[in-house]
Simulated assay, not measured.
Amino acid sequence: MDLCYTSTVVPRLIRDLGAARKNISYNNCMTQLFTAHLLAGVEIFILVSMALDRYVAIVKPLHYMVIMNRQRCSMLIFMAWGVGFWHSVALLLVVLNLPFCGPNQIDHYICDVKPLLKLVCKDIHVVNILMIANSGMVVVAVFLVLVASYILILYNLRTCSSLGRRKALSTCSSHVMVVILFFVPCIYIYVLPAGSENKDKEISVFYTVIAPMLNPLIYTLRNMEMRIAMWKVWSKMAHSKFR
């Protein structure tokens, strides 16, 4: 999902950085809007599924194989795609019905809903509310659910031994880092209305480029065998360099 999501943004961004004319057709713009929100929505609900997985593994370890069976995991992935699809369709339908006029210049590196709303030649007060309800409130609600899940995990860890607490927290640490990198910038972007003067372009880089780039590294470094293998490779490289 990280690879697919960032592929909707980064190739176009690299192309625009080296191009004299940074233009995009209307159809391509709408396609990027739909695809980016679809894949971001799926990513968000996969993170929720991962939080559920960690909650069950830590709080109810003896029932883990029964609760998190293959059928339930498949259902969670199917739900993530379904919710992401309806979110992006609803957003696209709102944008397609808006009248655009004036200078068709998007002050952003991606065709997102907020920079597009600034080009609309009518009152966007109602549309702003719909946008915040569709994107902002959903992101905030999901983030609060994730925070609540980790509060419950910490509450249940109070009776565990110090070794058990360390193992449980190390299991959750990578997921917490990914959630913070992705959700905090998203909340900043989508809770504020389109007319606000803010650092949208700079903040968007965190969840469109930096977070997907760091996620594989964050998850990989959790694995002890992977850390040992990487250390061996780096040691051989350093040894051959200074030999």
Rank of each mutant, 00 (worst) to 15 (best):
P61T: 12
P61S: 09
L62P: 00
L62Q: 10
H63P: 01
Y64R: 15
M65I: 11
M65D: 14
V66L: 07
V66Y: 07
V66F: 10
V66N: 05
I67T: 11
I67M: 06
N69Y: 02
N69R: 02
N69G: 11
Q71P: 02
R72L: 14
R72I: 12
C73V: 04
S74C: 11
L76K: 10
I77G: 04
W81M: 12
V83H: 07
G84I: 07
G84Y: 04
F85R: 12
W86S: 13
W86P: 02
W86Q: 11
H87E: 15
S88P: 02
S88C: 09
S88N: 02
V89L: 15
L91H: 10
L91T: 14
L92G: 14
V95K: 06
L96N: 12
L96R: 14
L96S: 10
L98C: 09
L98V: 10
P99G: 07
P99I: 07
P99E: 05
F100G: 00
C101T: 03
Q105K: 06
Q105A: 10
Q105E: 09
I106V: 05
D107A: 11
V113L: 03
V113R: 01
K114W: 15
K114D: 11
K114Q: 14
K114H: 14
P115Q: 02
P115K: 02
P115A: 04
P115H: 01
L116T: 00
L116A: 00
L116D: 00
K118I: 08
K118C: 09
V120N: 01
V120T: 01
C121W: 03
K122W: 03
I124G: 01
H125A: 13
V126Y: 04
V127I: 11
V127L: 04
N128E: 10
I129K: 12
I132A: 02
A133L: 14
A133C: 12
N134K: 04
N134H: 06
G136K: 03
V138F: 03
V140C: 08
A141D: 02
V142N: 09
V142P: 03
V142K: 08
F143T: 13
F143A: 15
L146W: 00
V147K: 06
A148N: 06
A148L: 09
S149M: 12
S149W: 01
Y150V: 12
